[in-house]
């Protein structure tokens, strides 16, 4: 089933806004795209419009956090990155309770092309001290993880796609910083997040048919990384495969490779991108082009296992 990350986010924000009076939402004129417009309709007095100015938005959110609010900043992931220095120098350095929840990450903004497709953000956020980095797998994961990050004191980057959320869970109980083990397997371990979790399950099915037993983890929290689950699951397998809709540099693949190289040296195959995207009328055609469909990934895994 294909759902929408942003729809799930927009609705969850309203539901959590009912419970949390301190929750405020900031927008840089993309509310109808990020679906924070639902929050504006429900709580106009807690919705702040700053116009097309992501840098001002992030620093304004810092001020709101200093004054005791829980500000949620949403934008297209690619354009929120222009405020990286504001995020670094004020939000992360001062450990402020700002929640950065962009949509349109990865290839999800398929029509808009390489300017809008964001394949570097996890790396840029993961490197920041104090920052928690979360990449929900599907639409049902959005609300429980949103609740978790709002209840956490401190800065968080929670990366969402636009639509094309492939269903993984029914009614998941997810805990921040704790990987979700979806399948056990003896031959290889696949560590995925975001939309690639659903793809990883398809890959595991296909590998099974070919006699390869694959475990699958949803590593929704990239930072802090659940090393315990990773090392426990990786111990028995020959190869660890990471799958993400992001650059293979510095994101989930980087994080997993860092941990394994220090604590459990093991062959690691990182599936992701190393280029900019391009526009495509069809999202899945784009994934195919960049080698992120399950058929392409299975072939790659067979080549190394």
């Amino acid at each position: 089933m294909i759902e929408s990350f942003r729809e799930a986010f927009g609705r969850a924000l309203v539901e959590l806004g009912e419970e949390m009076g301190n929750l405020v939402v900031l927008d840089a004129d993309v509310k109808s795209s990020t679906k924070t417009i639902y929050f504006e309709r429900a709580f106009p007095e807690r919705f702040i419009q700053v116009g097309i100015s992501e840098q001002d938005m992030v620093s304004t959110a810092a001020g709101l956090a200093i004054a005791g609010k829980i500000p949620v900043v949403s934008a297209f992931a690619a354009f929120l990155m222009r405020a990286w220095e504001q995020i670094r120098n004020t939000v992360a350095r001062d450990n402020l309770n700002v929640k950065l929840v962009p949509t349109h990450s990865g290839f999800s903004d398929h029509m808009d092309g390489s300017s809008h497709q964001c394949l570097e953000d996890v790396a840029l956020m993961r490197v920041l001290p104090n920052m928690t980095v979360v990449v929900p797998a599907d639409a049902p994961s959005v609300k429980p993880l949103l609740r978790e990050i709002l209840e956490l004191e401190g800065p968080v980057y929670m990366r969402l796609g636009r639509d094309h959320a492939l269903r993984v869970y029914e009614d998941p109980e997810l805990e921040l910083g704790r990987a979700s083990v979806l399948r056990e397997g003896d031959d290889v371990l696949i560590v995925a997040n975001g939309v690639m979790v659903a793809m990883a399950l398809k890959v595991a099915d296909e590998l099974k048919r070919r006699g390869i037993d694959a475990g699958v983890i949803d590593m929704h929290t990239v930072k802090p990384l659940d090393e315990r689950t990773l090392l426990g699951m990786a111990r028995g397998v020959g190869t660890v495969i990471t799958m993400e809709e992001h650059s293979v540099y510095g994101g989930l693949g980087g994080a997993v490779a860092e941990v394994l190289s220090e604590k459990l040296p093991k062959k690691v195959l990182r599936i992701g991108t190393s280029e900019f995207g391009r526009s495509s009328r069809d999202y899945f055609a784009l994934l195919e082009r960049y080698g992120l469909t399950h058929e392409r990934i299975v072939r790659k895994i067979e080549g190394v296992v």
Binding site: V24, M57, T60, L64, Q86, D94
Partner: peptide, 20 residues
């Protein structure tokens, strides 16, 4: 209330506090 050193950010932070 807020660290600085990188220029141009304090006015936005002030706005956030004022809005709160």
């Amino acid at each position: 209330e807020v660290s600085s050193g990188s220029l141009g950010q304090g006015l936005s932070v002030a706005n956030g506090i004022a809005l709160a």
